[in-house]
Simulated scan of single mutants.
Amino acid sequence: MDINSLVHTLDTCGQMGLILSTEESLVLHNSLLLLQNENHFRKIFFWGKIFGEEQDYYIAYGYQKDALLGNTFYYSKNCTDWGLLPPASEAAKLLTPFCATKFQGDPSVVVDILVEDDEITIPEKERKPKIRPLKEEDRLAATVYYINFEAVVIPRGVLFKREDGVVVENLSFQGLDDLESLEVKTFLHFRKPEQKWNKNLLTRNDYNYAIDFLDSAGDDVPEGCFAVQTSPGGTYVIVKSLYWPGFMLWHRLKTPEYGFVYFGHGKKCFDVPFMVQAL
């Protein structure tokens, strides 16, 4: 969420179960302004909070030019001192789903992960379990990567892709209406698209490549892994990820106001396919 409306949006999220204290909000706002000025970011955002046993991690990101691919992430344990969050390594991406323990709150802590040899290249009888070290800072980076890739969505039309390929915020975005907000396909993944460019072209009658270049959340498997609901009175639409409990997108209908935030332990719910089938 944009820090310019940090206190207001946290008040909104607080009504839905996600909240920071007034002190945290003010300290975050001031420290992120300093971080923005130091790094010459065009905009900076508060991403969320990952809970730890001893200390929690506050996550923020900013960009200088490209609003989609130019994001740089930072983390802090006290809302004041920010460290650069390294890109998620391939080893961390592979090991993080096997880590069952909670975050400790110390980036230097190393956790031993017990994994087996490659199931594809090594016969089952010859496989041997191995212990792989995973640093908590690398695990944090991989967790943020997975949440961004699988859970973070934005309303259709928020971003605009220019002719030179640079993605910027769409200044003409005026918000979704009541009917659009009820459709999951109206919300797009906030990441580099994985599907072919003409995927939305084949499914939308009002296709516009400048705003439909991202993957739609309506194509995620299984169907129903995102929950869409409106607030009492129909002022806001709220989108939650079942795979990553704690993520929430909110959007004030018929206005450009929106934001997303994550408050959780950084654990993915792998039971979603069975839960959705049961419903």
Rank of each mutant, 00 (worst) to 15 (best):
P256K: 11
T72K: 13
E119A: 11
E180Q: 15
I59K: 01
A141H: 06
R139N: 13
S21L: 04
A142S: 14
P97G: 09
L85V: 06
L214A: 05
V167C: 04
V261Q: 02
M1W: 04
N205L: 15
Y61H: 10
P245L: 05
N198Q: 12
N148P: 02
G264E: 06
F263L: 15
K268C: 09
T101M: 14
T255F: 08
A278P: 03
T96V: 14
K128N: 12
V144L: 06
L242V: 03
Q55M: 11
I3Q: 03
I120R: 00
H265G: 11
L6T: 11
F41V: 00
R42G: 12
T80W: 00
I50S: 01
D66T: 07
W197E: 10
D106T: 08
P193A: 10
Q195G: 01
C13K: 07
T235M: 11
F187S: 00
K185S: 14
N208W: 01
F226M: 13
E119T: 13
K161W: 04
P256E: 02
G218S: 05
I59H: 03
L214M: 11
F41L: 08
K125G: 10
T203V: 12
P273I: 03
M1T: 14
T80A: 03
T80F: 05
F51M: 09
E38H: 05
L32S: 01
Q104G: 10
A278K: 15
S31F: 05
H29G: 07
H251V: 00
E183Y: 10
Q195M: 12
F46G: 08
F46S: 07
P123D: 14
T143N: 04
G17Y: 04
K254Y: 02
V168F: 00
F173P: 09
S172K: 12
S76R: 09
D118E: 14
L279E: 13
I120D: 01
T143K: 07
F160Q: 04
R191L: 11
L214I: 09
A60T: 02
S31C: 12
V152Y: 01
D271M: 14
D220Q: 12
E119F: 13
L85W: 00
Q277R: 15
P129W: 07
L182R: 15
Y209I: 09
P86T: 06
V239S: 08
R252A: 08
Q15L: 15
W244K: 02
T235A: 12
P273K: 07
E163K: 11
D206A: 08
Q174T: 13
Y243P: 01
Y207G: 02
P222S: 04
P273E: 02
Q104K: 15
D219H: 10
E90V: 03
D212R: 02
C99Y: 07
D164H: 09
A92W: 05
